[in-house]
Design a protein around this nucleic acid. Sequence first.
RNA 1: GCGCCCGUAGCUCAACUGGAUAGAGUAGUGGACUUCGAAUCCAAUGGUUGCAGGUUCAAGUCCUGCCGGGCGUACCA
Length: 579
Amino acid sequence: MDIFINKIITLLREKIPLPAETIERLLEAPPDIKMGDYAFPCFSIAKQLGKDPKKIATELSQKLIPDDTVIYINALGPYLNFHISKPLLFRTVLEEITDKGAFYGNSDVGKGKTILIDYSSPNIAKHLAVHHLRSAVIGNAIYNLHKALGYTCIGINHLGDWGTQFGQLIVALKKWGSDYVTASPENSHKQDSTKKEKLTVSKLNELYVRFHKEAKVNNALEDQAREWFKKLEGGDKEAKDTWQSFKEISLIEFERVYKRLGIRFDSYAGESFYNEMLDDTLRRIKDSGLTEISDEALIVNLDKYNMPPCLLRKKDEASLYATRDICAAEYRKREYNFDKMIYVVGSEQRLHFRQFFKVLEEMGYEWVHDCTHVDFGLVKFKQGKMSTREGKVILLEDLLEESCRIAGEIIAEKHPDLENKQEVAESVGIGAIIFSELCTKRVKDVLFDWDVILNFDGETGPYVQYTHARLCSVLRKYGDQVPTDANYDLLKEDDELVIIKQLECFPHTLLRAAYNYEPSILSNHLLDLCSTFNRYYQHHRILTDKKELRKARILLVHSIKQVIRNGLGILGLKSPEKM
RNA sequence: GCGCCCGUAGCUCAACUGGAUAGAGUAGUGGACUUCGAAUCCAAUGGUUGCAGGUUCAAGUCCUGCCGGGCGUACCA
């Protein structure tokens, strides 16, 4: 808390020649709460003065005079430890949480700033599978984090709705899909459509798999696909209508899953959205004198940055991923004038981002330095990497369904008379999945394992939700209005102090999590808080007979509940009151 | 080959800008529900932080070199 830190800085500045910011930077928390609340390591000042750090600590501990805020100062080796008034600490933190409620932890550091977050961005005409989960869930958490910090957030789902694969699908549909009726408006009113099967994402998947299987033995197929994609780019009506139906079918499925996950977007402007603008972008790149022709393809040579070239146009004149990303970046800057733009995309695309960021830089766009690739590790399977082309995937909807089913089973066993079982099972089942994606650092590759992801014990989403439900239960039993004031002298258990410190640093945790684009910092903080509370709960009675103590503890319980709820909300989990 | 990333307990992971004794979960073992929710808690067990150097008062954290793994490396995204 600022009042304590400022007090310590004021005290120290009277005796040592360091600016306030330096002192603040050096201040840290001792490893054990018994050692003190804040520690000032004397190494750097010792070096400056050419003296022994231990001696300095001792001398300072004698010279500094404690008061009502900082009540005791002692030296421990080369560290100067400050002990603050505990009742004042409890009062400050608990009153702030009570005061701010659902907004505790929020700040205005992002006020007036706009951040664009590009996340999820699946390819259409394919099912959402478990490996699509990471980007969506991480991106959503980062969105919520920044929103809490006052940023204006724009969530963009940069749909993969353009590219040669749609040429492939059109060929496949024409060749083997005559039994299907597509969903586009032109076809839906046709009388004979009832006889035909409705095209679905599953059917498209089958066609996609079949195409790649047959293309191995029939070279002509790839050529036809390229031709159809060129027609699509050229605005051919048949190609366009067919593609449009692919997109509509896909979005129905996507939105169903996003809704279940509690994820939303401000824009669905995908790759196709930029078609009309591509030529202008290409012209600007050319005008910057960056391009050259190599093997009939248009490229930007990046040799001097020790990178392979960035391909902008294939020899068949079709555009490429990088072209569309550069174009999209230009458009987004024009349209939103963002202060930051982040791409939540797997780390296998690192080179791609380095390349196209470099092209933007070479084009003279200073704002490229506000763009960040927030990467994350691969989802791996026991059988190896997942491949849509071979049709081997675990569908996201199947995973969600299974998780909710298990949550339902556990509820049926433990609390058969819980009123809204279905709804709670959904919250817990989905929560387990989301949390498991957010509790380790992004860079780590993750091995998909049904047993691990569907385990609800230990460091999991359900554990945090359970703790929340338990806190709610205590508050229900208490019955009365939660007190707004209490005798803070009575809170003197070690765990109460640990808890209050964890509650205290929640706002700082949000800042760190946002700054590092790392939701796991928040999820780990919540796990720590829950763990401390559950231990405390086991050993101390909240609803004790002693009235004043009970009041103080209830206030503490209420604050823990509030912080867990706020934190889970940011991560994208619901906080059921009973489960 | 080259580039980027990662190596911490059997397994999965923590450790804020380098700081005091490297912490959890999980599996296995033993224990705690007539008291506020046992999806919980407690105990014991589990480590030369891949290896070798270097920088520093201080290295899991920074630098160099090895070893091991992942990803990428021109017309997929």
